[in-house]
Design a protein around this nucleic acid. Sequence first.
DNA 1: GTCTATAACGGGATAGAC
DNA 2: GTCTATCCCGTTATAGAC
Lengths: 180, 180
Amino acid sequence: MLARLMDLFRNAGFDGASLSDISASTGLGRSSLYHHFPKGKEEIALQVLAHLEDQLEESLFEPMRSSGTPEQKLARMLDTVDRFYDGGKKACLLERLCASVDARRFRRPLHRAFMTWIDAVESLGVEAGIPPASARHRAEDLVVRIEGALVVCAGTGDTSVFARTIRDLRDSVLAPVSRG
Amino acid sequence: MLARLMDLFRNAGFDGASLSDISASTGLGRSSLYHHFPKGKEEIALQVLAHLEDQLEESLFEPMRSSGTPEQKLARMLDTVDRFYDGGKKACLLERLCASVDARRFRRPLHRAFMTWIDAVESLGVEAGIPPASARHRAEDLVVRIEGALVVCAGTGDTSVFARTIRDLRDSVLAPVSRG
DNA sequence: GTCTATAACGGGATAGAC
DNA sequence: GTCTATCCCGTTATAGAC
């Protein structure tokens, strides 16, 4: 159910998703929704966001801390990301919630989600022997490029930019430091 | 006036900007708005988008075709971008309109705006002697990273990522091809 | 818990006087 | 061109029966 809601918010954003949409996508009537989420739409979005954080932890971050070489773990992470965004065809919930009126409501979980992601990639870089400062910058860059590629693909309708971005990241994130 | 409307749509997005907001930000009453924009809110957004395209042409793309070394023109372009987004504090109208319900309404101008931008940077790379394919990829990458940095900054509230991204682009976009 | 019904409000859009 | 007044609809949210 939270999965279906996440799809909805990814497609429509917070402002674009109406209670009617939410009702249709869950099969629950208005009253049932307010039974489960007494504080209404904002609470629904926050729970969906919390669900995404759990999902990221389980499918992205936890595998990055388990066994394997940093290269293998990076490759697995990018595979998961590629599948999650369907090769650039699906939007990012984090980005969609950043772009909503009064995004301050979501700032704390959004900040946490981005930071956890960046931290995980940074650790991977450090594990691979990259100097901490460079590892940090590259980790930020990975998230920046994935989010940016999703925006450009959504705007142009061309997913090749996302595919190429993922491919580039595969090689560049853990490459030996020569130019940073 | 279109400038004020652009600020509004950059802040609130298409779905988040109500006619009341539009009325307040322009000082025009409802009827005056429909006098100037008979087809309502969608037409307003389209005209704001067209205004942005003009502005980009004048302040970004045209200077990139004028005199100066490619390095100088890239630096000027990034300076303008940095000012335009206020160092990462302000959102991008293109991204905001990508993230609205039924973004297909804006697909054509959005596609055109992104492509014109990418093309201009590509030309700069070719002018600097970079192989066409690499120049294209780097140009796409520049736009991707700028958009992505804006998203991450909006989500984390930390503009340092945008500042570092601009700094990196200054050096990397026209660097000699060694690793792509 | 879920339903039907409805309140209370704000949204986009129009009509007609001036 | 702008104003006042208004329509119609969708929105969030609540009440009360079952």
